[in-house]
Simulated assay, not measured.
Amino acid sequence: MTEPRRIVFLLYAQVNVLDVAGPLEVFSQPNRNGFAPQATPYLITLASLEGGMVPTSAGAEFATKRLDELAGPIDTLIIPGGLPSAPAVAKAAARLAPRVRRVCSICTGALILAEAGLLAGRRATTHWDYTARLAAFAGVDVVPDALFVRDDAIWTAAGISAGIDLALALVEEDFGHSVAMRIARQMVVFLKRPGGQSQFSLPLAIQSRDARFAELHAWLRANLHLRLDVALLAERMAMSPRSFARHYLAATGQTPAAALASLRLEAATSRVLAGQTLKQIAQTCGYGDEQALRRAFQRAYGITPQEYRQRFG
């Protein structure tokens, strides 16, 4: 019988709860529900340098084992986020890395891996608010908008919920697509958002920049099936088309046409994953026909809507 893979979360004071709880739930699913081909695919351990109760950023505490007292090999070491710097944790990660199959970080855990010297010469990501700090480490090639990045045996994930995406990708590597799919369905999450997908949804990004256009964006999302142009949007904002285009670009960093194309693509992508027909999607999202929808997916993702559904649905 195959031995279980040991997953060790290395915790420290003020660690982010969801950085631990989200991936922990993913790895526990095959153990509890028999999804994997073996009875106990993962041996999950919460560890810390000193052991005992570790306070989290939310005030709750995790019970941990002392890292030096763990017996047996470690398959996957995960450093969650919480602090931008933790020298003692970085030192422990550097010491363990040569004998661990995979070293992973979530959120600001990437800064700890960089502090340990494990990201030099590698591609990596972290929470969007800390990408500049990560880039300050010599030799780190920061991918600022990725949900997670794999560089050989080092995996780094963006903030908070991206740890779930990372954990599902690790399970998929270990036990295949079908096991990861069953876990995702059980947890009511996408199997995985593509690793190169932006950390932001387009509506959230553009709406967060200027509240003046929030109502317009909500209206657009509800009316993507209409024939939309700058003149119509300007009319809704009681502006001239020229003034609207200028103010919109200054407020959101995008032209109205580019924002509308992104809103349509995001809506279409959600519907593709939900299983709607391409004809329905093309009509409800304003593409007109299936060929236009296919061309939009090819430009954005390099694959067809059907291939996108197969990979990520």
Rank of each mutant, 00 (worst) to 15 (best):
V100S: 01
Y130R: 13
L118Y: 02
G51P: 06
P37W: 02
L118V: 06
S270Q: 15
A250L: 12
V89Y: 04
A39R: 13
G72R: 00
L49G: 03
L113E: 03
R101S: 06
T64C: 01
N31W: 08
G109K: 00
M53A: 10
R309F: 09
D75I: 11
Q38G: 13
L67M: 05
L166N: 05
T40D: 13
A157I: 06
R295G: 12
A58D: 06
L224A: 01
G22K: 01
Q254H: 15
C107V: 07
D75K: 10
I44L: 02
Q38N: 15
R227E: 14
A132M: 12
A146Y: 09
P87K: 10
A120H: 14
L216K: 04
T269A: 08
H247F: 13
A234D: 05
A88G: 11
P84N: 07
L166A: 04
K279P: 04
G22I: 04
G139R: 04
P80A: 00
G82E: 00
L224C: 01
T269F: 03
E307Q: 14
L278Y: 05
N33G: 13
S270A: 14
L224H: 04
L191V: 13
T125F: 09
A231P: 01
Q310N: 13
S262L: 14
A58V: 08
L224Y: 07
A169N: 01
A39Y: 11
S240A: 07
F137R: 05
L134I: 06
E266T: 08
A205G: 14
A218R: 14
P41R: 00
A92F: 00
V272G: 05
E173Y: 11
L220E: 10
F137D: 07
R150Y: 05
A116F: 07
N223F: 09
D151G: 05
A114Q: 08
S262V: 11
A153I: 13
H225N: 10
P203H: 14
V89W: 00
P84H: 03
R221W: 15
A258G: 07
E235H: 09
A60C: 08
D152G: 03
A292Y: 12
A114S: 02
N16Q: 14
A146K: 05
I303S: 11
L293V: 02
L265Q: 09
A267Y: 05
L228M: 09
A169C: 04
R150T: 10
A257F: 11
H177Q: 15
D68M: 10
L216P: 02
A211G: 11
H247I: 12
M187L: 12
V54T: 01
F200G: 12
Y308S: 00
F27N: 06
P194I: 06
K65T: 15
P87H: 09
A153F: 14
L24D: 03
R294V: 13
L46D: 09
A36H: 09
A94Q: 09
A292F: 08
V89H: 06
P241G: 04
A92G: 01
T304H: 08
D75R: 12
T284V: 12
R123H: 09
A132P: 11
T2G: 09
C107N: 07
A158L: 04
R246L: 15
P73I: 03
P37Q: 02
A238W: 13
A258P: 07
Q291E: 15
G302P: 07
P256L: 05
T277I: 03
T64K: 06
D75L: 10
L278F: 08
